[in-house]
C-alpha cells in the first residue's frame, strides 16, 4: 500500500522544552489515522510541523500527492501546502467571522482562483464565471456537511459546533489527499460527535482521501481510526489498531499513571 504522508525522526524544541522528540510515523492512502496523547503531549505541534507553521529542528516530512509525486514539505512556505492536497483544521477553529459561511468555504478554494487583482477589480466575465462555479462547489460541500440552509449567514453569529463543521466543509474544496483534523469533536455534545464520526468516515470514503486526526474523545478515535499512534512528551509510545492501543501498558501508564504511583 502506498503512503500519503511519512514523518521521519521529527524533533522540535521550544527553548529547553522538547515538544516533539524523534517521532516517526506514516499514513497510508485512504487511511484514517489517529494521534492521541495526554494534554501537552505535542500533538498539535506535530500538526504545525507537518503544515510548516513551525519549522522542525530535525526530521523529514514527505507527502505524496494524487499524481504519485513525492514532495519534501520541510522548508515550504505554509501557503503552498494546500496546493499539494494537504489541508488542515484548527483546534480552536480559525473562521473568518466577518464573512458569510459560504465565503469561508470558498476560501478553501483560494488557490484555484485564476483571476488576479485587475481581473477581479474589473469583474471580468471569466473571473465571475469561475467564482460562480466554485460557489456552486462550495454549496455542495456545505450540503455534504448539512449547512446549506444557512450558507449565507455570517460565520461570526454561529455556535461552536457549526464553526467546526464550516472548517470541515472548507477542507473539502481543495481536492485533498490528506485532511488533518485538530480535535474535530472538541466542544461538541454526544449527538453532534456521533454525527461528526459518520461525516468524517463519509469524507474519507467519498473524497478518497486519508485523514489524520487528533482527538480526546476516545470513543470517536477508537471507533473511527484504522490505526492509532499514542504519544507522550513528544515521544511515540505505541502504534497499532484500537484494540492494540487499548491493551498497551505504556499507553495505560501515560493516561492513568503508573500503578505504583497510584
Amino acid at each position: 500500500m502506498s503512503q500519503v504522508l511519512s514523518v521521519k525522526n521529527l524533533s522540535i524544541s521550544f527553548g529547553g522544552l522538547r515538544a516533539v522528540d524523534d517521532l516517526s510515523f506514516s499514513i497510508d492512502r485512504h487511511e484514517i489515522y489517529g494521534l492521541i496523547g495526554p494534554n501537552g503531549a505535542g500533538k498539535t505541534t506535530v500538526f504545525n510541523c507537518i503544515t510548516q507553521f513551525y519549522k522542525p529542528d530535525t526530521g523529514e516530512i514527505r507527502f505524496t500527492d494524487q499524481k504519485g509525486r513525492e514532495h519534501l514539505l520541510n522548508g515550504m512556505p505554509p501557503h503552498k501546502i494546500i496546493g499539494l492536497g494537504l489541508v488542515r483544521t484548527f483546534q480552536n477553529t480559525e473562521i473568518i467571522r466577518e464573512l458569510p459561511i459560504i465565503d469561508n468555504v470558498l476560501l478553501g478554494a483560494h488557490t484555484e482562483f485564476k483571476a488576479g487583482v485587475l481581473a477581479n477589480m474589473f469583474a471580468m466575465p471569466w473571473a465571475r464565471k469561475q467564482e460562480r462555479e466554485l460557489r456552486k462547489k462550495a454549496m455542495e460541500a456545505l450540503k455534504y456537511c448539512g449547512l446549506d440552509q444557512i450558507a449565507n449567514e455570517y460565520a461570526g453569529a454561529q455556535p461552536y459546533g457549526v464553526l467546526k463543521l464550516i472548517e470541515l466543509a472548507r477542507t473539502l474544496m481543495c481536492e485533498p489527499s490528506l485532511i488533518i483534523l485538530d480535535e474535530p469533536a472538541g466542544g461538541l455534545n454526544d449527538a453532534e460527535t456521533e454525527r461528526l464520526t459518520e461525516l468524517i468516515r463519509g469524507i474519507a470514503r467519498d473524497h478518497h482521501c486519508a485523514i489524520l486526526l487528533v482527538e480526546h474523545d476516545m470513543k470517536l478515535v477508537m471507533g473511527l481510526c484504522h490505526r492509532i499512534c499514542a504519544i507522550s512528551f513528544g515521544k511515540k509510545l505505541a502504534e497499532g489498531t484500537a484494540a492494540e492501543i487499548q491493551e498497551n501498558a505504556l499507553v495505560q501508564d501515560a493516561y492513568l499513571g503508573k500503578e505504583d504511583e497510584a
Binding site: 501557503h79 480559525e94 467571522r97 470558498l106
Partner: peptide, 21 residues
C-alpha cells in the same frame, strides 16, 4: 472577489488564510 476574500481572511485569521493558501 477572491482577492477581497483573501484580504479579509488575512485580517481576521492569519493562520486560516495561510492554511488555505
Amino acid at each position: 472577489s477572491s482577492t477581497g476574500r483573501a484580504m479579509i481572511a488575512m485580517k481576521s485569521s492569519r493562520s486560516a488564510a495561510m492554511a488555505m493558501g
